[in-house]
Design a protein around this nucleic acid. Structure first.
Lengths: 219, 219
DNA sequence: GCTGTTTGGTGACTTTCTCACCAACGGTGC
DNA sequence: GCACCGTTGGTGAGAAAGTCACCAAACAGC
């Protein structure tokens, strides 16, 4: 575990001196599945670099509905939301560990030192930003212009990750798309009627992934 | 015009040497109203810092619909979109001069030098990022969770900027909210029926700003 | 078993979107 | 003046999505 830096492509080019600094001055933290990583005014004092697991970043509305903004995977960092939460803590995005998570926690001070000292580290940070922002653009595009059935098909494919069944509740899928549970329930029933999925409590089994794929690519 | 830097609060703290560099190595550009500032694969070689006017940043869908993401005002910079376009030029955001625009164009090279040399400049850049990202979060929230009539009321208030009439077409308002023109037309008619606005070709006159204000604050 | 919670199903109704088409207005050229 | 045309806005009908209220089955904990 001592050389987690190799997992971050963008950091390979760092001079040894700074790699050592990163390793010695950060500590490895472990989070349980479901743990809140940040959010709700909890000003994060550390930048997290994910070594294992996934963090889901989502936004909540007043009325209890929510929408998933993006996911941070192993080998990526939480810069965007961290930086944002520091600047304005009033908005209601939060990060939740979707699986067990292992991460390197970089103290704010070390982060700033690295930004000052290293072009490569800056490059890394700016690229993390870009990726997230592109994700946000994508979410906006989907929300504004795409039909729910198409988005649901996309999401099922994405979440299933090649496997033929996935354990999610309709409620969770609704949060994924930022819509209401009823809408998902009815949509899934329609998918089942068309033979694309098979439903049971807490599980969606994909029975015709080609059809789903086609639907997801609909204009 | 030689000392435009004072217009950027975040840059006051810069050492004189760097201020001079910014001034001597940038050039002032003027854009006509309606000019495209960036977008569609036009990799911007300059970072723009707005001195006068407004740039509207919007996203376009395949089907010809669009949505306004945010506006860059005088005293702000286009970092986010510039950086993003550099990283991934495939997404379809574009910037349009909403008024006549005067801006300082900083060459990419100078921008990078400043980032390297100055903590204060970095601070400035990161803050610009934060502001934009918060804007994007806001757009997502509105799109996902707020009703169109409420958003329209908000937009009318915002665009009218205190004045009691504004010249916009229904089509433009639709693009503002990322919805269809018909939806706006019907909504405006309803507003007119309720005595909140008075409509004529290309103009919306606000007749009861209090009522609009109330509506815009509805949950 | 009983009990409470989670999950999903449903009807009725409203809001929003889509499509197709038309009418009025404001220019331009003749 | 008038004919022509692009822009702007109005409208109806039907589909898609969201909302509200309520119910029923499945499951978890005793």
């Amino acid at each position: 575990m001592q050389d987690w830096i190799t997992r971050f492509k963008g950091l390979n080019a760092l001079p040894d001196r700074l790699k050592r600094k990163l390793i010695t001055q950060s500590r490895i933290v472990t989070l349980k599945k479901g743990a809140r990583v940040f959010g709700q005014g909890s000003s994060p004092e550390n930048l997290l670099m994910l070594l294992e697991g996934t963090v889901r970043v989502q936004q909540q509305s007043t009325a209890g509905r929510e929408i998933v903004l993006y996911r941070v995977q192993a080998g990526e960092s939480c810069v965007l939301t961290t930086a944002c939460l520091l600047a304005y803590d009033d908005h209601s995005a939060e990060g939740v560990a979707e699986t067990m998570v292992k991460a390197a926690a970089i103290p704010r001070k070390v982060f700033e030192d690295l930004i000052t000292d290293s072009t490569d580290f800056r490059q890394f940070v700016f690229q993390s930003y870009s990726r997230r922002i592109t994700d946000l653009f994508f979410v906006i595009d989907e929300l504004a212009f795409r039909r729910v059935d198409i988005r649901l098909a996309q999401t099922l494919i994405l979440l299933s990750d090649g496997k033929d069944a996935l354990s999610v509740t309709h409620q969770q899928l609704a949060a994924e798309l930022g819509t209401a549970r009823e809408v998902i329930s009815r949509q899934l029933q329609e998918f089942q009627r068309r033979g694309m999925v098979k439903l049971s409590r807490g599980v969606v089994q994909i029975t015709d992934s080609d059809a789903l794929e086609n639907l997801s690519k609909d204009k």
